[in-house]
Measured scan of single mutants.
Amino acid sequence: MAAGGDHGSPDSYRSPLASRYASPEMCFVFSDRYKFRTWRQLWLWLAEAEQTLGLPITDEQIQEMKSNLENIDFKMAAEEEKRLRHDVMAHVHTFGHCCPKAAGIIHLGATSCYVGDNTDLIILRNALDLLLPKLARVISRLADFAKERASLPTLGFTHFQPAQLTTVGKRCCLWIQDLCMDLQNLKRVRDDLRFRGVKGTTGTQASFLQLFEGDDHKVEQLDKMVTEKAGFKRAFIITGQTYTRKVDIEVLSVLASLGASVHKICTDIRLLANLKEMEEPFEKQQIGSSAMPYKRNPMRSERCCSLARHLMTLVMDPLQTASVQWFERTLDDSANRRICLAEAFLTADTILNTLQNISEGLVVYPKVIERRIRQELPFMATENIIMAMVKAGGSRQDCHEKIRVLSQQAASVVKQEGGDNDLIERIQVDAYFSPIHSQLDHLLDPSSFTGRASQQVQRFLEEEVYPLLKPYESVMKVKAELCL
């Protein structure tokens, strides 16, 4: 049975990233139509530049190519590739079939990587351009969430054990800070992308030097003109047959890092959902379990974690691919890159769409948070109580021993009897502590235990987050809708 299948058929496997999760716009960027249309555009740009620099290419040939950029006979191309065992030459023939007058000058002087690699770089750039505003929107939604809850005390956790208090907004800023680093890295790697350009079979530009009869300047002009037509500021000066596969490492490393950030955020949300302090959106008709109707599973956060793990592992592909590119190139890269580049971007696209949807509907339960604080705060307040007693004339050592005994009794009630923490009640009825009984409410005010959390939130948002989001103001209103 021949390899390949009808990918629109229910009898043929289709990647869930495309069929179930990723956005239509990201799927289109990695589609065959987008790819092969870009090949034709690159052939047109090459012909236009070659004509401008004096090669015998007519206006009629150029116009014929322009008129057929979208006229792609995919069936013919597939048949040609089956016959020739070469995808680029299959599309040269297919393009030439609908451009008979231009057929002889299509791909003039070029090698397969002229269309293959340059198209990949265009796709990487455009895919990054799709991700950047999506990530900015996630940051914006979380920034709104953090600002609104900047002063809401909550129990902090280290080692997932109760620690000092923080605020809900401050905790959210930990998430935002990681995503801001990801946004900066995505922008950097996007701006650092260079075009492969017009380089020939081993990167020496020998074929173009021959076409222009040894004119170095025209060869350099050709490279520059096509690079500018493709919208790049610069091209690699040095290439082998391909652009260095280190570029793929750079791009997928940034995406993998984004995956790590999203995994951490969504894990926190899942843990908070278990504590009943916070939940992701839950639709009115949504079913959490087929057997347990009360369940409210954090399905979206779980999906993000599941896909983020996949995204983090994909960076190993370009690392290994770059390491086995012998001399000017081997074909070890080809099949692998067809999979890992598309999957990385479709996965990143999915987790950003999902995280935006989550961040637009996060639900906080202040009463649950308050109750958990009441359970733990008495123990945390013991040092403040000791200091207040010393100020009232008591002995630190005597007070410490009193607190120690009462704390152990209260802990026994919590752990052995399943009761509430009654340390404060014990202190309130103990005559030894009568000098500070009137101060206990103040000493137990949760806001006095959150330090500068709310001020940190305000400063972080104003100095770091809002300036970073400013270039994306025009796209901030787009909502994230999930079908599944």
Rank of each mutant, 00 (worst) to 15 (best):
T354Y: 06
Q320F: 11
S412D: 10
A411Q: 08
L42E: 04
F195Y: 14
D216T: 12
Q286H: 02
V475W: 10
S257A: 08
E64P: 00
Q51C: 07
W39M: 13
Q41R: 14
M181D: 13
E60H: 13
V138D: 10
Q210R: 15
K284I: 09
V138W: 12
E79G: 12
V115Y: 01
R188C: 06
V254P: 09
A411C: 14
Q205V: 07
P318V: 08
L209Y: 12
A411V: 09
N384P: 14
C483L: 11
L314W: 06
T330K: 03
K134M: 06
R338S: 02
E48D: 05
F460H: 07
K276E: 06
R396F: 05
R196H: 15
Q210L: 07
H400M: 05
S257V: 07
R190H: 13
V262C: 15
L179C: 09
N357S: 15
I373F: 05
L443G: 04
R14T: 15
A230S: 08
L183Q: 09
C27W: 10
P133Y: 15
R141D: 06
G288D: 01
E64R: 08
E417T: 08
L484V: 09
M380Y: 01
N297H: 01
S407T: 08
H93D: 12
L352Y: 08
E401D: 11
E328Y: 02
I123S: 12
F449N: 04
Y243G: 13
A47V: 08
I106K: 00
Y432E: 10
F232R: 01
L46V: 06
H159Q: 03
L17V: 15
K66Y: 12
N71E: 13
V390E: 04
M312E: 05
K101H: 11
P133C: 12
R338T: 03
L352T: 06
Q428F: 12
F157H: 10
V405Q: 09
T330G: 11
G361S: 15
T202D: 07
L468P: 04
K75S: 12
L346E: 09
Q320I: 13
L461C: 11
L311H: 05
A308G: 13
C304Q: 05
V247H: 12
M299G: 06
Y365E: 05
A344D: 04
L55P: 02
H93K: 15
K35D: 02
Q61S: 09
S23W: 08
T321L: 11
P100Y: 11
T321A: 02
T38D: 00
L128G: 07
Q416W: 13
S12V: 13
N71S: 11
A3T: 10
E360W: 02
A308R: 02
D420A: 04
M76W: 13
S289R: 00
G197K: 03
